[in-house]
Design a protein around this nucleic acid. Structure first.
Lengths: 343, 343
DNA sequence: TAAAAAAATACAAACGTTTGTATTATTATA
DNA sequence: TATAATAATACAAACGTTTGTATTTTTTTA
């Protein structure tokens, strides 16, 4: 007998106890305005009738949904998932839920997602812009409406009114490459990512700076920027990169941990010895860098903390009285070079 | 000047054009009940005033949120993320959003999440039960209220009214182990997962069946069930497993791809040759099985499709007229043994 | 050109809460 | 015991839509 019984609402409780809806509402809120005995009766009846508050009605009435919208470029990137975990953890502790949307590396999707979020479903937004995102007008539109926004990871342009969280990619790369140079490496290969992406520009910059500062020759043949957005294609690209090199690199600096692992795989399969003949450093410590044989040296980012911090900044904005002019904050997080067997 | 201008609503458009709210609403809906010229005026004004419909009000009025709630045991498991991607893809195509919540491998959290979803925030729920989930009463509570539910992956008990999606774990394991046996392996090690989890019980069962059917000796020392819920601990457990074995396995069947990779890592580091001395098969093809050197043979599950199917079943339930008695469906998906260098 | 039919629009209730204000019931004070 | 103070409750508007029904306007028909 699948007869769908109507949801119990405040009115039902009120009618049953012959009191007003307002009193029921206040009783359930433990307001001091209702008599102890009434409150007890209401609780008992609510439980007996299986009352469940209607979140939507609550939200409409209060103007708050307690949902944070999160937009990331892709799901199949442990970095973003880990950030989401951080956001989720902090959010949950503060009574917020998160609604994750992928922009699928597309500016169009990013904008559409943003517009969807603008319809009052979320109280605030945490966003990691895609590499396609050149114009930030769509984000400014949101902040201008007074909707709190926190940006992270790939920020090409600062948005007035939004908070920003970044990694010092430039410096992190510099340190890693410097480390290779000091180990005596002369032919250092660089595997970058989509060059339109600010983080990859910065990592490249750090590489260049270190090479120049220590006067190490940069071989064009040993520099590539991965353009693929798909795991399988990345693999192909990296294989091709190493295939016909006349100069054999004695070190590889890869701008993601996946690139690092793919490089190691390709090198090992072509018979090269790691780290004896060639060292490898990856960026990020979420893939299987620690499990790979040999394990991979890499730059660890505080990914989870990044998410937590993003959530913290957003919720902080949400708690601001609306007449306070929000002061834009830029948070820079530090990285950490983890030495393993590949160097 | 951060003055928060009030959201534009239907009323504002109505007043501006001196027509009724109902007409504005219908005009924006392209209802045939409004005159062409009126519709045009409304659209123009809406755009000019920057109107954005209020999703919450819409939901309250229509009784639909167009949100699907998804509960998974953990985020840091590529399997679940991939399923979520599948759900998201299908959902998005059908104008639904997904709200993901992690139960953190805890029954308590799972139940709490379910209760949160019961508050009318989501139209339906897709859930993968934790290993702790023995009682399914909390899920039955939901279906009884007429809220559509689809379960996947770790289903210990069928829930009346819910749809179920599973993998034929038993058979997949049987086939993999049979493959090892036919290759002539005599000392096959088994690395299982939390034994409370139905999927791991089934994978173990498949292993046992194959071993018995072909009369291969099962060495207690070569069988373990990983109990950890944390990546680092898993690593330790597996290292310990191999450490003091008197019998050296000539093959390893691991119940997740991560276990498989950890096993390969441990074996390689202790100087064993793969596949010459020992073969390894993993379950799942989402980690770096293809990137590892040597690459890992594994049982591939249609993870993304699983998510799509789950969303499809759920949305199908949502579209059912509410008086139709829903017929519970059980969908079983097939797996595929991918041969690589580790065997 | 008046009545009937059709088209366009307006009205008002509903969705399930919250919350400010008004009212009633209770207790304290003189 | 009448009155003031306070406690408890009820009323009603508000949140921003949707939608069934009533009303008005326009068009068609005789």
């Amino acid at each position: 007998m699948t007869f769908k019984k109507r949801r119990v609402k405040l009115e039902d409780i009120a009618r049953h106890l012959n009191i007003s809806i307002a009193t029921v509402s206040r009783a359930l809120d433990e307001s001091p305005r209702v008599k102890e005995s009434t409150r007890e009766k209401v609780f008992k009846t609510a439980k007996a009738m299986g009352y469940m508050p209607n979140q939507i009605a609550k939200s409409l009435s209060s103007g708050k949904t307690n949902i944070i919208g999160v937009i990331i470029p892709r799901y199949d990137e442990p970095f973003f998932i880990e950030v989401c975990r951080g956001i989720d953890e902090y959010a949950r502790e503060h009574n917020y839920k998160i609604l994750i949307s992928s922009s699928r590396n597309s500016f169009e999707f990013e904008r559409d997602n943003l517009i969807a979020f603008e319809r009052g479903l979320v109280d605030g937004i945490i966003l990691s812009p895609t590499h396609e995102t050149e114009m930030f007008a769509h984000i400014r539109n949101i902040t201008r409406k007074g909707i709190p926004v926190v940006l992270f990871d790939n920020i090409r342009e600062e948005v007035p009114g939004a908070d920003h969280i970044l990694i010092d990619d430039d410096k992190a790369s510099f340190n890693a490459v410097e480390y290779l140079i000091k180990k005596g490496k002369k032919r250092i290969a660089f595997i970058g990512g989509i060059i339109e992406k600010k983080v990859f520009q910065d990592r490249y910059k750090g590489f260049l700076e270190a090479m120049k500062q220590y006067n190490v020759t940069i071989y064009d043949e040993l520099v590539m920027h991965c353009a693929s957005l798909d795991r399988d294609l990345e693999d192909m690209e990296i294989q091709n990169f190493f295939k016909n090199q006349k100069i054999k690199p004695d070190a590889v600096f890869a701008c993601t941990d996946n690139y690092g692992l793919l490089a190691m795989k390709t090198l090992l399969r072509s018979g090269r010895k790691i780290p004896e003949e060639v060292s490898v450093i990856g960026f990020g410590d979420l893939g299987l860098g620690a499990v790979f044989v040999p394990s991979m040296t890499c730059i660890a980012q505080p990914t989870f903390e990044m998410g937590q911090k993003a959530a913290a900044l957003l919720i902080d904005q949400l708690n601001e009285p609306s007449d306070v002019k929000h002061h834009k904050r830029v948070v820079k997080l530090a990285t950490n070079l983890i030495l393993r067997d590949s160097t």
